[in-house]
Computed example of a mutant assay.
Amino acid sequence: MMMTRRSFILSAIASSLLASSLTGCSQSNSVKTLTPVEIDTHTTCDLDGMLLADYAGPKAQIFYTGNDTPTFFCDTVELFHTLLAPEQVKAIAAVYVQDMGKADWEQPRNNWFDAKTGFYVLGSKRHGSMGPTIASFAQETDAKKFAAEWGGKLLRYAEIKADMVDLSGGALHDTRM
């Protein structure tokens, strides 16, 4: 059977479309690993422009779906306020917070972990950049030790509710503003 030029071209186009659709499927099914980005002296909070390195307490970052760079927060209260806001409609690929069981409270660096797996202490005497903060820990034993020393209530990620994250007090506690 002899193939006409038109049949050959249509066959080539169909093969090309099939190959590209199969490649597209395999690419869309692959999961891209998003790793936390370390802060530096120029990293700013996406909500208020504060320099993260200038403030004590746990920091946070969100990778929104489709973005390779995170949105930074100078405090976990800001993070949870954003996550729990009813108008939050952006799809989230990853959320990271700092493990305050390992990081220096006054100048936290590194020690990022998946926020959804963490343990949190709400209502302690320790303050972050926005005043009262939610201390984040990768290990429950570290969170319990912190709560015993500084006070507060131990919570899991899913137990933190919108009425627990109040941003109104931040400016009252910031002597640098």
Rank of each mutant, 00 (worst) to 15 (best):
F63C: 01
D99H: 04
T33W: 14
V95G: 00
W105P: 05
D142C: 01
H173N: 15
D174V: 13
T43W: 02
G57K: 06
L79D: 13
D114H: 03
V89N: 15
P70S: 11
T117A: 06
D174T: 12
Y157T: 02
C74H: 12
Q61L: 08
I39C: 04
A12M: 13
D104F: 03
M130K: 08
Q139N: 13
G24M: 06
I62Q: 03
C45K: 00
S7M: 08
G131N: 03
A19V: 07
G118F: 06
M1L: 14
K102W: 10
R156Q: 06
I62S: 01
G152K: 11
N29S: 13
H42A: 15
A138P: 02
E38C: 00
V89R: 06
Q139Y: 09
P58N: 02
F73Q: 05
C74G: 10
P36L: 06
M130I: 04
D40W: 00
M177I: 14
D54L: 04
Q27H: 02
D40R: 06
L18M: 15
T71F: 15
D163A: 09
R156E: 04
Y55I: 05
A158Q: 12
W112T: 14
E38R: 00
D46C: 11
L122S: 01
E87W: 13
I9A: 05
G118K: 06
A158L: 12
L154N: 00
Y64H: 15
T44S: 00
A115Q: 08
Y157H: 04
T35V: 11
A148S: 14
M177Q: 12
N111V: 01
T141S: 15
D68W: 12
N110I: 02
H127V: 15
E87M: 07
K145G: 00
Y157K: 01
M1A: 13
T4H: 02
G152I: 01
K102Q: 15
T33L: 13
E78G: 14
R5D: 04
A171N: 10
P58V: 15
E78A: 03
C25P: 00
T117R: 11
D114A: 06
I9E: 03
S20W: 10
H42P: 01
D174G: 09
T4A: 05
C45Y: 00
R6M: 02
S30D: 08
T133H: 04
E38Y: 00
L10Y: 08
T65P: 05
L52Y: 02
L17G: 03
Y120I: 02
N110H: 15
I9D: 03
M130L: 14
H42S: 03
R126I: 07
T65E: 11
F8N: 01
L154F: 03
T141Q: 11
